[in-house]
Simulated assay, not measured.
Amino acid sequence: MAAPDMIECVPKHRELMKSMLEYDLLGFQTNRDLNNFLACLRTHFGLASKDGVVATERGQTRLQRFPIGIDPKQFADYLAADLSPAEQEKISLLLKNFEGSKFAIGVDRLHYTKGIDKRAEAFNHLLAAEPGSISLLQIAPSSRADVEEYQKYKEDVENAINHVNAEHGTDGWRPIHYTNDSFSQAALARLYRAAHVSVVTPLRDGMNLVAKEYVAAQDPKNPGVLILSKFAGAAEDFNEDEALLVDPNHPEEIADAISKAANMPLEERVKRWGSMMDKIESYTIHDWPADYLRELDKSRVTVPADQFHHLGLGWTNEAHMPLYHNYTAALTAYNDIDPAAAALKEAAYADVKSAFEALAVPLKHTQDRLWDLPVPTASRDGTRGPELGAREE
Rank of each mutant, 00 (worst) to 15 (best):
A255Q: 01
L34I: 06
L79A: 10
L188C: 06
A187M: 09
L126Q: 00
L127H: 00
E148Q: 13
F75Q: 02
A86W: 07
N31H: 15
T43W: 04
V225N: 01
H13L: 02
E121H: 10
H309L: 11
A217L: 08
L127V: 03
W173K: 10
K353R: 14
S198K: 00
E240T: 11
M20H: 09
L359Q: 02
Q307D: 14
L363W: 10
N36Y: 14
T366A: 15
F45C: 04
H310Y: 13
P251V: 00
E281Q: 15
P220R: 06
Y178T: 05
P4G: 05
L93T: 14
S92W: 04
G106M: 06
H168R: 07
P386I: 10
L331H: 00
E268V: 09
D368W: 13
D241R: 12
M6F: 14
P376G: 12
S143F: 15
Y283G: 02
L110S: 04
N326G: 04
A305E: 12
I337R: 00
V10P: 01
S133C: 02
D256V: 08
L127A: 02
D336L: 12
T113L: 09
P202L: 07
R65I: 15
A186Q: 08
P85Q: 05
V246E: 01
L388A: 00
N239S: 13
M277L: 11
V197I: 09
G69S: 13
K102I: 01
T43F: 10
P67K: 09
L110D: 05
G27V: 08
L34R: 11
R384M: 15
H168Y: 07
